[in-house]
Every structure is written in C-alpha cells, then in structure tokens.
C-alpha cells in the first residue's frame, strides 16, 4: 500500500535517510524505533506524501508520488489515518469540530458522523472535553484526540508518530490495544515509538516487526526484543 524504494532524504547537507527501502502491506504491524533525530518522523512524513525524497521513489497505493497531483495526494491521505508527533489542531475550533475535520473536508457532516465522533471521544476518555479548545488540553489529551481523529473515518492504514508519548501506561496500553484490534481486521499500522516496554507488551498480542532507524539506515531489530 505504501512503498519506499531506495529513498534518500537530507537536510542542509546532513543525510537523514540513506537508501531506505520499506513497504507497508495489508496486515502488517510495524514498530519504528531509533534515537531521537534518527529520522522516524521524516520516514512517516514520506509515507504520508507530505514530502518528497531527494532520491528514490515513493508509491502511495501503487501510484508514484512524483506523478500525483495535489488532489491525488489529498485523495491518498483520505485513505490514511495519520497521527503526527506534535499533534496538530485548529486551535480556534472546539475539540469535537477538530475531530470531525476528516469528514468536514469531504462534505457535509451529518448526525451519524457526529455520533461516531462522540463515541470515539468517550472511548479515549475525552467525552467531557467536546467543547474544549485544543490549547487548553493536556499533552496526553491532545494525543488521544489526534488518534481519535485519525481513526474516525475508518482509514485503510494507520501512520502514528509517538501516539503514546505523553500517556500513562494504562492509557498507552489501551490505545495500543485499539491499534492491534484494527490490525487484526487487516489494517496495516506503522507506529513510531521510543517505548520499548510497549513493544514488549504488544508481542503476545500481535505479530509485529520492529524496525530500527539509525545513521540513515533502516534495519529490522533482532529477536532480542
């Protein structure tokens, strides 16, 4: 569904990704680890079609990114559930409107969509914050909201950048379990995380692979984890 082949990205002469090849297929569950600044976010942004590589090819749903119009990229993004690390909201809109955005940009929002959003918000523990403005929420609350927004339109795949970074253990496990449930239904998941304990906790539940990004190289971590 997403294919990066021999992709190279550099910022100001510094190589962040060097000759990286990666493929996300239906049913896959990947953890992406690596030191801070290794390029995890960069790799996720490539997968989301939010940037283009200096070299190599990115294919989204089989189509080369370089040949996609901006409308086609938007179309591809509608099939993805994306959670960025610094969760992004429209700060002047209430949380519920923010979570409904994937529907808003597609067309009219109906009562059923609203009910769906409210269910999801309640499930991630934000039922009481529907009218809150994003800047007034805690870091963990915003992360939960971002995940709720990403999952609301039933995406075909999930790209999540540190979705549990600010969460307590219990909430982290709860969200991880949700992603694993989705994955069992066939939705591929790529999740960047520093949390090795979380990866270990996932092990009995899902056949996940752990990728490690370091010095621009992407490797599959050993069975040690």
């Amino acid at each position: 569904m997403i294919d990066l082949s021999q992709v190279t990205v550099g910022f100001g002469g510094r190589m962040v990704l060097a000759d990286v090849t990666f493929s996300l297929q239906p049913g896959d569950f990947f953890f992406l680890t690596g030191p801070s600044g290794a390029g995890k976010t960069t790799l996720l942004r490539l997968c989301a079609g939010a940037m283009t590589p200096a070299e190599g090819e990115v294919r989204l749903f089989g189509r080369p990114l370089s040949e996609m119009t901006s409308d086609a990229r938007a179309g591809a993004r509608r099939r993805m559930g994306i959670v960025y690390q610094d969760t992004q909201f429209l700060d002047h809109l209430p949380l519920e409107e923010n979570i409904l955005l994937p529907f808003t940009v597609r067309g009219p929002v109906d009562a059923e969509m609203r009910a769906q959003a409210q269910d999801l918000m309640t499930w991630v523990g934000l039922g009481g914050h529907r009218a809150a403005l994003p800047p007034t929420l805690s870091g963990g609350e915003r992360q939960r909201a971002a995940l709720a927004r990403a999952l609301l339109p039933a995406p075909e795949l999930v790209l999540a950048d540190e979705p549990t970074g600010n969460l307590d253990w219990e909430m982290s496990l709860k969200l991880l379990t949700l992603l694993i449930e989705l994955n069992r239904l066939g939705t591929p998941v790529l999740m960047a995380t520093h949390d090795l304990a979380l990866i270990r906790a996932a092990k009995p539940m899902v056949n996940a692979r752990v990728l490690r990004l370091k010095d621009g190289k992407l490797t599959q971590a050993g069975a040690a984890l």
């Binding site: 901006s70 409308d71 938007a74 993004r77 992004q88 909201f89 429209l90 955005l101 940009v105």
Partner: peptide, 16 residues
C-alpha cells in the same frame, strides 16, 4: 501555515 498543515493532514484538497 498550521491551519493548512492540519487541513492537508486530514485530506483536504487545495481547492477546498
């Protein structure tokens, strides 16, 4: 700029 990033993230078309 942030508004545009968020809208792009959720799949908004440029015309929208």
């Amino acid at each position: 700029a942030q508004v545009i990033d968020v809208l792009r993230l959720v799949g908004a078309r440029d015309t929208w």
